[in-house]
Amino acid sequence: MAVTTVDVTKPHVLIVEGREEELFFGAFSQHLGLKDLQVLPIGGKEQLRRNLRALTLSPRFTEVISLGVVRDANANPGAAFQSVHDALQAANLPAPERPLLPAGDSPRVTVMILPEEGRPGMLEDLCLRAVATDPAMLCVEQYLQCLQQQGLSLPHNLSKAKVQAFLASRPEAGKRLGEAAQAGYWPWDDKAFAQVKKLLQQINSGG
């Protein structure tokens, strides 16, 4: 019976879906020097409601000062925000009125829907915007055009395919989005990441 546990160890917590997001936001917060921010993966949107409740019961959760929740918008950013809002309420946590507007004091809660407010998409779209001017992206687009010209159907999730193709151009190919973040392949200072950067700093400072 393999049993490992994740403990709440820091006063500022960012909740993300899975391992890739954990690595991505962990690398970003490390880049920003945010030492009091802990990134916790607690599962996808289907489990968010019950997993948030479980998180609030964790030892030392009462010591959490600020809490951020990051979720992909996918096709419907409004529905994505609403599901987070409802999950927060079900867990007796402060539920913000809209994305990026903090609510409550104990803890102070902020929600961000990716890639940005009001737009469908996911973390991959945000990363692609950050590298839009990278010369490799021209090759990525050409690669996808080539597939079409060959009569091959494109992948269902084009954003994920583009990220993989882009990362294949880096010195160490084969990394996934989160691992790429750890390797420093995403340009943290690009304006595409400005809102995420602001969110991380805001949570780390308690607001």
Partner: peptide, 20 residues
């Protein structure tokens, strides 16, 4: 005292959250 019911304990175990 913090009490876990079936759903919250299942969630904590599946996500690896500390419960002790």
């Amino acid at each position: 005292a913090v009490t876990y019911d079936q759903e919250t304990l299942a969630a904590a175990i599946e996500t690896g959250l500390e419960v002790r």
